[in-house]
Amino acid sequence: MTLSRRTFVAAGGGLLGVGLVGCSSSSLPLPFISDPDDEVRESVAASEAELIAAYDAAIEKLPAESGRLSAIREQHAEHLAAMELQDSPAAAPAIELSGNPTTVLATLRKLETKAARARVKSCAKCDDGDLAALIAQIGTSEAAHAQWLR
């Protein structure tokens, strides 16, 4: 499980509380207050990691398209970074894209469309409105990517 910066801040606050009541036992479990939106962040980050892996495979397969594909890949890396996870999500398994260039681009288009739809669902789950807007914004980028790949 990856932890967000917020989770660490919350956990740090909990540790301070333990210190104030004077308990010095090292066997006490660490208080752990997780951000309710962490699950959403992790889900989005994992999806972004998968998209990055897909673009890595596509760039290798379609060097003639590397300009556009690399630009989109970089944007997914920015989406991933925006989730502010302390640890990167587990690397997505390498993806093998088969078929001709048209098929590869169609596959990427489907992945982007699926991701954009998933962002709508994810933003609906957020407690934090600003995070919801950020995830919705990421979805707009992905919706546009799908269109760019046509």
């Binding site: 630009a71 989109i72 944007q75 919706a143 546009a144 760019w148």
Partner: peptide, 18 residues
């Protein structure tokens, strides 16, 4: 918002991360 982004792309706008 996504529909707006798709239309912007259709007018030639180059997508950005945010």
């Amino acid at each position: 918002a996504q529909a707006c982004a798709r239309r912007a792309r259709n007018w030639g706008w180059r997508p950005v991360a945010f």
